[in-house]
Design a protein around this nucleic acid. Sequence first.
DNA 1: ACCTATTTGTCCGTATGTATG
DNA 2: CCATACATACGGACAAATAGG
Lengths: 118, 118
Amino acid sequence: MRVVVDTSSAEPLFAQVTAQIRDAILTGSLAAGERLPSAKDLAASLEINQHTVLHAYQDLRDEGFLELRRGRGAVVRKDHPRPDPALLSAIDEVRRAAAAGGVPLSTVVHLLTARENS
Amino acid sequence: MRVVVDTSSAEPLFAQVTAQIRDAILTGSLAAGERLPSAKDLAASLEINQHTVLHAYQDLRDEGFLELRRGRGAVVRKDHPRPDPALLSAIDEVRRAAAAGGVPLSTVVHLLTARENS
DNA sequence: ACCTATTTGTCCGTATGTATG
DNA sequence: CCATACATACGGACAAATAGG
């Protein structure tokens, strides 16, 4: 499981971790039942605080992707959410339209994520 | 808006705050559009940490009850979730059954909330 | 246009508790 | 009994958005 963080990014560190792990699960590179590194270890390897990783883990738990247990660690749930086929095709459509219009993906990401702060 | 916390309770402080505010909203004693005290102020009046209150506020935001804005504070959303009538009647049913069987509400609460740690 | 105070958002560090193995 | 690992709480610091003067 490869995770990287960019301290200079505007995206919060915990959100970066959340997004990457969520992605790893959705793409299958993190299999159901698989155990994640402990928050302490992952934090050490990323050189960030353990709480920041725990924040990410807890968000993923709330989203239904992880099961967290004291003393045991974080495990990918077997019944974790899977992307709706309609969503996948919609994403595909966006990718095609962006490519056709010469719009860089970074712009698409910006349009997609821009919102009133929450 | 009256909130109290019990430090000796097994329920986490932030969860106590979350539950009481959620309840106040659902019962209407906290009206939509109403502004909550700042996390700092509420924390001071409860003699707990500001972060603990913020944790509660952010949970309630995630549940759709509050809108949080920097510099502005926490406001009850106009379109906050309302209890499903089916849920309310189910709760009523539980209350009747418990009363009929002489089961104390504390037992019902225990049965209802007992679960594997999350 | 500027400055200040307020308020939430994030991150770090530390400490303690609790469940697991 | 002991080590591991998540859970909660406290404290401090700084950033960013908002509101008001």
